[in-house]
Amino acid sequence: MSDALHNPVFRIYFAVLMGLLVFAGALLAILRLALHKNVDHAWKAYRGWLIMIPPVFAALLIGRLATIVFFTAVAIGAFIEFARATGLYRDWWMTSIVILGITAVGVVSAIDDPDPAKHVHGWYGMLMALPVYVVAAIMMIPILRDRAKGQLQPIALSVVGFVYIGWMFGHLSFLANAKNAYGYLLYLLFAVPLNDIAAFTFGRAFGKTKMRPNISPNKTWAGSIGALAVSMLLPWLVRFSFPGFGTTELILTGVIVGIGGQLGDLTISVMKRDIGIKDMGAVIEGHGGVLDRVDSLIYVAPLFFHMARYFAGLS
């Protein structure tokens, strides 16, 4: 992963995203200034995108290590929001162990495989083994402080925090080691939010039957099917993103993003509804917290990673 400016995949995604941002900005300006429509909510979300997109492109532009550091920082930020929202944050030992575990995901993604025969960036074997060590460390904390009462909840929250938010999302960092890193990463970063937007748009236009009223009352079957259709189509439109993919892999990519993205969204909704909160945080204007923004990616990233690794290989 280097020399982004000379990478055709990077350049195409950059141009498309800039074009979309300019188009969306112009559309909102026309709606607001010429047609006097109330677009405050959309405007806030748009400004949020303007804040989020530059650091992502900056990290990708700088290269592999910057990308790994960026995604690791995002994973830590997302976990801290989860810890704050659940109250786990009050337990600094548990919180610290999970943060260290997430940092370790970044480190094993950044270093080379110690097996000299492999000559590859990223220690895949340790990435797969890390949950064992981190869960073992989490289990050790109550024993070290000789406390049993009320310990199962922080243990469970820490394991979910590390495995789901830290490790599963951390697969995105490891993708920076792939030969086709720009294609995989930019596709995921582009397709997953597009899947969310498609679900919202189709739901608003055609949605009648609620999909999961006890989890996320605004989601409808029409929105879900519309999003799946868009996500199934997209890999064929941006086929240049996956040089090693055949028909099976492109279909699987569509299914993983189309269904996995929605499941990721609903998973965080389950957590929020159980806790009784609307958003996980307030760090991104118009989007809520980091976790609210990356919820779908958490689910999609590892599924896509292992599919791509199995069928096409990373290096």
Binding site: E81, R84, A85, T86, G87, Y89, R90, Q153, D274, I275, G276, I277, D279, M280, G281, A282, V283
Partner: peptide
């Protein structure tokens, strides 16, 4: 049911 106890400032921006 588990009792969750979010930190009082969980929904504030870092500056707030």
């Amino acid at each position: 049911e588990w009792h969750y106890d979010p930190t009082p400032d969980f929904d504030q921006t870092p500056i707030e």
